[in-house]
Design a protein around this nucleic acid. Structure first.
Lengths: 180, 180, 180, 180
DNA sequence: TATGAATGAGTATTCATTCAT
DNA sequence: AATGAATGAATACTCATTCAT
């Protein structure tokens, strides 16, 4: 899969020749499906995020209480990251330099994902389970930051990683930080 | 400075010709001082981190109490990031793909920086200001993650950013999370 | 029509995909009718020249006197060029580099066209209206050269062009050059 | 020389790899001297035309009388064409499609060359050796057309060509066409 | 020692042609 | 017979690195 290549070698590092070879298609075919390498990367990102957002929506269904939903949100991200390093933040960091990124659908989806978390936090404030003196953006930073640092440490170390335990530890602290 | 180029255009995007021109040295000289472009980037990173670590050490001097020192630690990172996007995490993300990175001095320094924070947390536990049931690694994840998400949001938006206010908000939450 | 594409974009510039799309036929069909793109271009050229030679033959019918016939010859070329840049000399210039061209039917037709003009000149000499000390090949060069320069200037400028006036001016000079 | 390659294979047909190989320089060097293939072609054209214009100026010196000067003009063109197919009109026909051509120095030089001939014709009218009822533009068409057809026929045939005889025949007719 | 011109392997992308359906 | 998706060789251009001066 091209995704794997992009994640291993980065956007610039993965050549179209390699991507085609890895995918088992001739090089010309790549450019029938996607007009440019950039389009390919964007499309990949979009599909991954879309698949993930669907997955997340399903996971959150039927869960009551903002904190419980936030816990599931964190778990879903770590779980999906473990299974395949979706939402390749590394790729995004390289792609971000491309001026077209901010007009792309992928960017919209990522914004929506951010927004989803912030809405959960807002819910918590309204239902009285989250302190009303927190800065919502900063809470989001704390949660996403914690998730990504955890994922990155997983990625760097060869050790096996435990999604459930990490979720528990992360939520333990985050909830103390924001709970009434 | 080469650093600026790397930060603006990324590792791949900055050409050795540009770097030499910007630095005002002939292109050949670059390869006398550094064997490869990669070595140059590593050396740059190392120097930046070293300078920062010295700065940090000075900032922490004379501050008593683990929490107060952690607060200063966070402030120093955000302050330095604001002034120049040092420890260019973006650069690191690109360079990390290089197998040589994990043997480099730059990596050692970054590990030491991680270790410094973890030692502060350990101190807090020992002096009784931080709960002894937290996972030190996860606390570090939360703090670094929160810092970097904040810095990244600064970088993406054009808005001015307030180091002091961000430090206050971040510490407010993190301390609630880990304090006795 | 493929002809238009070749004339606008040149032989190399017009892609088979565009040609097929413009002609409203699927790309595969192109290569059933013509073995290669080159064959297609040759066939196009041939048909255009054939159509033009028929047109010319009709125009010359019933005209008496070599000079009158030469005048009509010149007029027909300019008239057809104006209506559609047939006998696309630009295309020919590109195609001529192809070693196969000189064995093609298109080349034969062009030779015949040259020959037709030279025969008219010969007629004129025999009927006594054209000096017998002119070099027939050079007269042909003068006439074709004059025609093509005129046509090329038309093509380059945006100005409207007047076939009748150009014919009159060109013939005025050419006839003075060759008349008894 | 790249010129030869362009003339033999056309602008599109000559690849940068071939050009470099023919010139005996590595491919990268080509793009140090010229930013693009197009620039290379333009530069080639410019130099050829400039050299020719210098040559022409020298040839025309000391010749009195517009007709004598026009004769030398024609002779110079044919002579130079024979020696090396300078002012490669074939190349120009391909390059002309490039929108940048009309802003190029090469185009200016070609315009100047056209203008030079038209000035000679104007001189002839003023000194009374050329009829004042001719259209100057059309005379230029006749002369350039005659020259180029002659040169093209030379190029196509393998036969040796005689510059002096061709000049004499061409001038014979052209002068009858325009003389008082 | 210091330089910057020279190098050539490497890159994304195109397009005439084929061939399975 | 008719199609259009699949192919891969070919192309202009870049840039880290070298090396003659």
């Amino acid at each position: 899969m091209a995704r794997v290549l992009f994640e291993e070698k980065g956007y610039q590092g993965a050549t179209t020749a390699q991507i085609a070879a890895t995918a088992g298609v001739p090089e010309g075919t790549l450019f029938e499906d996607f007009r440019t390498k950039r389009d390919l990367a964007f499309a990949l990102l979009e599909r991954d995020i879309e698949v993930y957002l669907d997955f997340l929506e399903l996971q959150l269904r039927g869960i009551e209480g903002a904190l419980n939903r936030i816990r599931k949100f964190i778990w879903s991200h770590l779980y999906t990251w473990k299974r395949r390093r979706f939402i390749a933040r590394f790729l995004i960091l390289e792609i971000r330099q491309d001026p077209g990124f901010y007009q792309s659908h992928a960017y919209d989806l990522m914004q929506r994902y951010d927004q989803d978390l912030m809405s959960l936090i807002q819910e918590g404030i309204e239902e009285g389970s989250i302190r009303d003196d927190v800065d919502i953006g900063m809470v989001r930073n704390l949660i996403f930051g914690g998730i990504e640092q955890t994922a990155m440490h997983w990625a760097l170390k060869e050790e096996p990683f435990d999604v459930d335990a990490s979720t528990r530890q992360l939520c333990g602290m985050v909830f103390r930080a924001i709970q009434i």
